[in-house]
Amino acid sequence: MTRSAVAQGRPAPVINGDTEFFWEAAADRKLVAQCCSACRVLRHPPGPACPQCHSFDWEVVELSGRGTLFSFTVVHHPPVPGFDGPAIVVVVELEEGTRFVSNMTDVDPDTLKIGEPLEVFFVDQVEGWTAPQFRRPAEPSSGVAT
């Protein structure tokens, strides 16, 4: 898959005290989540309190960025700003157990299969933020020189 190094036109995320750590990590090409310091539950999207035990104490953990396609939908109308065609919105179940909503580009949605492996990659936006997206992992090389 080819992908331009920079994209533009997508609506910027709302960045506040609960989400700033996430977007700063994305700019550094890291996928992170909150982890409750009390009960160790991962949570995404970020929020002020743990939905499990209601603790306000949390820490940032780096995620592998690997997971499987849990669900997806294709948004045909209205056109989504920053996308050349229909937007593919995906729910990825990450190896660590939390789910993440993002998108895929440069793929025919008719070829997507629930349960197939995906990996995160990051696309800088002209407007000054970085979008985590998902793609199929690169095919492993056969190890045979040609």
Rank of each mutant, 00 (worst) to 15 (best):
L118C: 05
P79L: 06
V91A: 12
E96I: 06
V90N: 06
V74I: 12
G85L: 00
Q125G: 05
E96G: 07
L118S: 08
E59W: 01
I114R: 10
C53G: 12
N103R: 06
F72I: 01
F121G: 05
G115L: 05
E59Q: 15
P117Q: 07
T105Q: 13
P45T: 11
R99N: 08
D124R: 15
G67E: 09
F56G: 14
E93H: 07
T68G: 04
C53Q: 12
G65C: 06
P117M: 08
V61T: 12
I88T: 14
G115D: 04
F122V: 06
K113F: 00
V61W: 00
F122I: 06
H76D: 12
E116W: 01
D110T: 14
F70H: 15
F72L: 03
W58H: 13
D110K: 13
V123Q: 14
G65Y: 04
P117W: 05
T98D: 04
W58T: 07
P78D: 06
S102W: 02
T68M: 00
D108Y: 10
F100N: 06
L112C: 09
H76S: 12
H76L: 07
S64Y: 06
E119A: 05
P51I: 12
S102F: 04
V74P: 01
D110L: 10
G115P: 08
V123H: 01
F121H: 15
V101L: 13
P51F: 10
F100Q: 03
E116T: 04
L112V: 10
D108T: 11
V91M: 14
L112I: 09
G67H: 10
V89T: 10
V75M: 13
F121Y: 15
V90D: 03
I114Q: 07
